[in-house]
Design a protein around this nucleic acid. Structure first.
Lengths: 105, 105
DNA sequence: TAACTATATCGCGATTCAGTAATATGCAAG
DNA sequence: CTTGCATATTACTGAATCGCGATATAGTTA
Protein backbone atom coordinates (compact mmCIF):
# COMPACT_ATOMS: atom_id res chain seq x y z
CA UNK A 1 0.00 0.00 0.00
CA UNK A 2 1.46 3.29 -1.13
CA UNK A 3 2.45 6.13 1.12
CA UNK A 4 -0.07 8.51 -0.44
CA UNK A 5 -2.87 6.02 0.01
CA UNK A 6 -1.89 5.51 3.61
CA UNK A 7 -2.20 9.23 4.15
CA UNK A 8 -5.66 9.22 2.60
CA UNK A 9 -6.72 6.42 4.92
CA UNK A 10 -5.35 8.33 7.89
CA UNK A 11 -7.22 11.42 6.79
CA UNK A 12 -10.50 9.52 6.55
CA UNK A 13 -10.00 8.08 10.01
CA UNK A 14 -9.28 11.61 11.15
CA UNK A 15 -12.71 12.70 10.01
CA UNK A 16 -14.21 10.16 12.38
CA UNK A 17 -11.86 11.12 15.21
CA UNK A 18 -14.05 13.80 16.69
CA UNK A 19 -17.04 13.44 18.92
CA UNK A 20 -18.83 16.38 17.30
CA UNK A 21 -18.80 14.63 13.96
CA UNK A 22 -19.74 11.29 15.48
CA UNK A 23 -22.69 12.95 17.14
CA UNK A 24 -23.81 14.31 13.79
CA UNK A 25 -23.43 10.90 12.18
CA UNK A 26 -25.33 9.33 15.01
CA UNK A 27 -28.18 11.78 14.48
CA UNK A 28 -28.15 11.15 10.74
CA UNK A 29 -28.42 7.43 11.34
CA UNK A 30 -31.93 8.02 12.65
CA UNK A 31 -32.93 9.91 9.53
CA UNK A 32 -31.64 12.46 7.02
CA UNK A 33 -31.85 15.93 8.52
CA UNK A 34 -31.30 19.59 7.75
CA UNK A 35 -28.68 21.75 9.41
CA UNK A 36 -31.27 23.43 11.55
CA UNK A 37 -32.60 20.11 12.74
CA UNK A 38 -29.10 18.93 13.52
CA UNK A 39 -28.36 22.10 15.46
CA UNK A 40 -31.45 21.41 17.55
CA UNK A 41 -30.65 17.72 17.91
CA UNK A 42 -27.06 18.17 19.00
CA UNK A 43 -27.02 21.53 20.74
CA UNK A 44 -23.98 22.56 18.73
CA UNK A 45 -23.62 26.04 17.23
CA UNK A 46 -24.77 26.49 13.67
CA UNK A 47 -21.33 27.41 12.36
CA UNK A 48 -19.78 24.29 13.79
CA UNK A 49 -22.50 22.01 12.55
CA UNK A 50 -22.05 23.41 9.07
CA UNK A 51 -18.29 23.10 9.22
CA UNK A 52 -18.31 19.51 10.45
CA UNK A 53 -20.99 18.50 7.97
CA UNK A 54 -18.80 20.02 5.30
CA UNK A 55 -15.93 17.77 6.33
CA UNK A 56 -18.14 14.70 6.45
CA UNK A 57 -19.45 15.60 3.00
CA UNK A 58 -15.98 16.16 1.58
CA UNK A 59 -15.02 12.74 2.85
CA UNK A 60 -18.22 11.58 1.19
CA UNK A 61 -19.46 9.93 4.33
CA UNK A 62 -22.60 12.04 3.96
CA UNK A 63 -24.40 13.66 1.02
CA UNK A 64 -26.10 17.04 0.87
CA UNK A 65 -29.24 18.03 -1.00
CA UNK A 66 -30.79 21.48 -1.24
CA UNK A 67 -34.46 21.72 -0.34
CA UNK A 68 -35.52 25.28 -0.80
CA UNK A 69 -33.85 27.27 1.91
CA UNK A 70 -32.67 24.17 3.70
CA UNK A 71 -29.98 21.64 3.04
CA UNK A 72 -30.69 18.08 3.98
CA UNK A 73 -27.78 15.81 4.85
CA UNK A 74 -27.83 12.02 4.83
CA UNK A 75 -25.46 9.13 5.36
CA UNK A 76 -23.93 8.45 1.96
CA UNK A 77 -21.48 5.62 2.60
CA UNK A 78 -22.80 2.58 4.46
CA UNK A 79 -19.26 1.73 5.45
CA UNK A 80 -19.33 4.51 7.98
CA UNK A 81 -22.01 2.59 9.83
CA UNK A 82 -19.89 -0.54 9.97
CA UNK A 83 -16.87 1.45 11.08
CA UNK A 84 -18.76 3.11 13.90
CA UNK A 85 -20.40 -0.12 14.96
CA UNK A 86 -17.04 -1.82 15.18
CA UNK A 87 -15.54 0.94 17.26
CA UNK A 88 -18.59 1.28 19.46
CA UNK A 89 -18.58 -2.44 20.08
CA UNK A 90 -15.00 -2.16 21.12
CA UNK A 91 -15.77 0.66 23.56
CA UNK A 92 -18.76 -1.17 25.00
CA UNK A 93 -16.61 -4.22 25.49
CA UNK A 94 -14.01 -2.17 27.33
CA UNK A 95 -16.72 -0.71 29.51
CA UNK A 96 -17.93 -4.19 30.41
CA UNK A 97 -14.39 -5.23 31.22
CA UNK A 98 -13.89 -2.23 33.49
CA UNK A 99 -17.13 -2.99 35.24
CA UNK A 100 -16.23 -6.63 35.75
CA UNK A 101 -12.86 -5.66 37.15
CA UNK A 102 -14.56 -3.36 39.57
CA UNK A 103 -16.94 -6.04 40.80
CA UNK A 104 -14.24 -8.65 40.99
CA UNK A 105 -12.16 -6.49 43.32
CA UNK B 1 -24.83 6.30 23.19
CA UNK B 2 -23.39 8.45 25.95
CA UNK B 3 -21.24 11.50 25.45
CA UNK B 4 -18.29 9.95 27.25
CA UNK B 5 -18.47 6.83 25.14
CA UNK B 6 -18.60 8.93 22.00
CA UNK B 7 -15.40 10.62 23.08
CA UNK B 8 -13.76 7.26 23.60
CA UNK B 9 -14.78 6.17 20.13
CA UNK B 10 -13.41 9.41 18.69
CA UNK B 11 -10.16 8.89 20.56
CA UNK B 12 -9.79 5.38 19.17
CA UNK B 13 -10.40 6.61 15.65
CA UNK B 14 -7.81 9.27 16.36
CA UNK B 15 -5.21 6.62 17.04
CA UNK B 16 -5.76 5.32 13.52
CA UNK B 17 -5.72 8.79 12.02
CA UNK B 18 -2.00 8.96 11.41
CA UNK B 19 -0.02 7.43 8.61
CA UNK B 20 2.94 6.67 10.90
CA UNK B 21 0.77 4.43 13.03
CA UNK B 22 -0.93 2.87 10.04
CA UNK B 23 2.48 2.04 8.65
CA UNK B 24 3.41 0.33 11.91
CA UNK B 25 0.14 -1.60 11.90
CA UNK B 26 0.71 -2.58 8.32
CA UNK B 27 4.14 -3.91 9.22
CA UNK B 28 2.76 -5.79 12.21
CA UNK B 29 0.16 -7.44 10.00
CA UNK B 30 2.98 -9.33 8.33
CA UNK B 31 4.28 -10.60 11.65
CA UNK B 32 4.91 -9.53 15.25
CA UNK B 33 8.10 -7.50 15.42
CA UNK B 34 10.42 -5.73 17.82
CA UNK B 35 10.94 -1.99 17.91
CA UNK B 36 14.29 -2.35 16.21
CA UNK B 37 12.77 -4.37 13.42
CA UNK B 38 10.00 -1.83 12.98
CA UNK B 39 12.50 1.00 12.85
CA UNK B 40 14.27 -0.82 10.04
CA UNK B 41 11.03 -1.72 8.29
CA UNK B 42 9.56 1.76 8.32
CA UNK B 43 12.56 4.07 8.28
CA UNK B 44 11.11 6.02 11.17
CA UNK B 45 13.25 7.23 14.08
CA UNK B 46 13.38 5.01 17.12
CA UNK B 47 11.80 7.53 19.44
CA UNK B 48 8.83 8.00 17.18
CA UNK B 49 8.34 4.30 16.64
CA UNK B 50 8.33 3.78 20.37
CA UNK B 51 5.93 6.64 20.96
CA UNK B 52 3.45 5.53 18.33
CA UNK B 53 3.63 1.92 19.44
CA UNK B 54 2.89 3.16 22.92
CA UNK B 55 -0.27 4.83 21.69
CA UNK B 56 -1.35 1.76 19.76
CA UNK B 57 -0.71 -0.32 22.86
CA UNK B 58 -2.63 2.01 25.12
CA UNK B 59 -5.56 1.76 22.73
CA UNK B 60 -4.97 -2.00 22.95
CA UNK B 61 -4.80 -2.36 19.22
CA UNK B 62 -1.40 -3.98 19.75
CA UNK B 63 0.18 -5.92 22.60
CA UNK B 64 3.77 -5.76 23.86
CA UNK B 65 5.91 -8.57 25.20
CA UNK B 66 9.42 -8.31 26.59
CA UNK B 67 11.97 -10.67 25.08
CA UNK B 68 15.22 -10.05 26.87
CA UNK B 69 16.42 -6.67 25.75
CA UNK B 70 13.79 -6.43 23.08
CA UNK B 71 10.10 -5.75 23.13
CA UNK B 72 7.99 -7.52 20.57
CA UNK B 73 4.75 -5.93 19.45
CA UNK B 74 1.83 -7.70 17.81
CA UNK B 75 -1.68 -6.95 16.61
CA UNK B 76 -3.92 -7.54 19.61
CA UNK B 77 -7.37 -6.64 18.36
CA UNK B 78 -8.51 -8.25 15.13
CA UNK B 79 -11.01 -5.45 14.72
CA UNK B 80 -8.20 -3.15 13.71
CA UNK B 81 -7.72 -5.30 10.65
CA UNK B 82 -11.35 -5.00 9.65
CA UNK B 83 -11.30 -1.27 10.24
CA UNK B 84 -8.25 -0.77 8.08
CA UNK B 85 -9.56 -3.06 5.37
CA UNK B 86 -12.79 -1.11 5.21
CA UNK B 87 -11.03 2.22 4.96
CA UNK B 88 -8.45 0.96 2.48
CA UNK B 89 -11.24 -0.46 0.34
CA UNK B 90 -12.86 2.92 0.37
CA UNK B 91 -9.64 4.64 -0.68
CA UNK B 92 -8.99 2.11 -3.44
CA UNK B 93 -12.52 2.63 -4.68
CA UNK B 94 -12.02 6.39 -4.77
CA UNK B 95 -8.80 5.90 -6.70
CA UNK B 96 -10.61 3.76 -9.26
CA UNK B 97 -13.31 6.41 -9.57
CA UNK B 98 -10.74 9.14 -10.13
CA UNK B 99 -9.06 7.04 -12.78
CA UNK B 100 -12.34 6.31 -14.55
CA UNK B 101 -13.22 9.99 -14.54
CA UNK B 102 -9.87 10.76 -16.08
CA UNK B 103 -10.33 8.24 -18.88
CA UNK B 104 -13.88 9.30 -19.54
CA UNK B 105 -12.79 12.90 -20.08
C1' DT C 1 29.17 -2.70 39.66
C1' DA C 2 30.29 -1.16 34.97
C1' DA C 3 29.46 -1.18 30.16
C1' DC C 4 26.52 -2.02 26.39
C1' DT C 5 22.12 -2.47 23.78
C1' DA C 6 17.13 -1.82 23.31
C1' DT C 7 13.35 0.83 24.52
C1' DA C 8 10.91 4.68 26.64
C1' DT C 9 10.46 9.45 27.74
C1' DC C 10 11.36 14.51 27.86
C1' DG C 11 11.54 19.38 26.04
C1' DC C 12 11.22 22.04 22.08
C1' DG C 13 9.58 24.58 17.82
C1' DA C 14 6.20 24.14 14.33
C1' DT C 15 1.85 22.81 12.67
C1' DT C 16 -2.97 21.53 12.94
C1' DC C 17 -7.56 22.02 14.34
C1' DA C 18 -11.75 22.77 17.43
C1' DG C 19 -14.88 26.34 19.07
C1' DT C 20 -16.53 31.14 18.92
C1' DA C 21 -18.32 35.32 17.05
C1' DA C 22 -19.04 37.84 13.16
C1' DT C 23 -19.99 38.10 8.45
C1' DA C 24 -21.06 36.57 3.78
C1' DT C 25 -23.85 33.89 0.56
C1' DG C 26 -28.11 31.52 -1.21
C1' DC C 27 -32.90 31.19 -1.66
C1' DA C 28 -37.84 32.49 -1.27
C1' DA C 29 -41.80 35.48 -0.19
C1' DG C 30 -43.86 39.83 -0.68
C1' DC D 1 -35.39 44.34 -5.21
C1' DT D 2 -35.57 44.11 -0.53
C1' DT D 3 -36.43 41.67 3.55
C1' DG D 4 -35.74 37.52 6.18
C1' DC D 5 -34.30 32.96 7.18
C1' DA D 6 -30.94 28.99 6.36
C1' DT D 7 -26.45 27.85 5.45
C1' DA D 8 -21.53 28.64 4.58
C1' DT D 9 -17.28 30.97 5.43
C1' DT D 10 -13.81 33.85 7.77
C1' DA D 11 -10.48 35.46 11.38
C1' DC D 12 -9.03 34.49 15.68
C1' DT D 13 -7.36 32.06 19.93
C1' DG D 14 -6.08 28.11 22.70
C1' DA D 15 -5.12 23.28 23.03
C1' DA D 16 -3.28 19.20 21.15
C1' DT D 17 0.35 16.74 18.82
C1' DC D 18 3.80 15.77 15.34
C1' DG D 19 8.90 14.98 14.51
C1' DC D 20 13.29 15.78 16.32
C1' DG D 21 17.40 15.48 19.40
C1' DA D 22 18.80 14.38 23.78
C1' DT D 23 18.34 11.79 27.72
C1' DA D 24 16.50 8.40 31.00
C1' DT D 25 15.20 3.59 32.04
C1' DA D 26 15.46 -1.50 31.69
C1' DG D 27 17.76 -5.67 30.88
C1' DT D 28 21.96 -8.45 29.68
C1' DT D 29 26.61 -9.59 30.12
C1' DA D 30 31.12 -9.40 32.02
Amino acid sequence: MSEAQLQEVAQLFGVLAEDSRLRLLQALMQAPQTVTELVAATGMKQGNVSKHLGMLAQARFVSKAREGNFVRYAIADPRVLTLCELMCGRVAEDARARLAALEGK
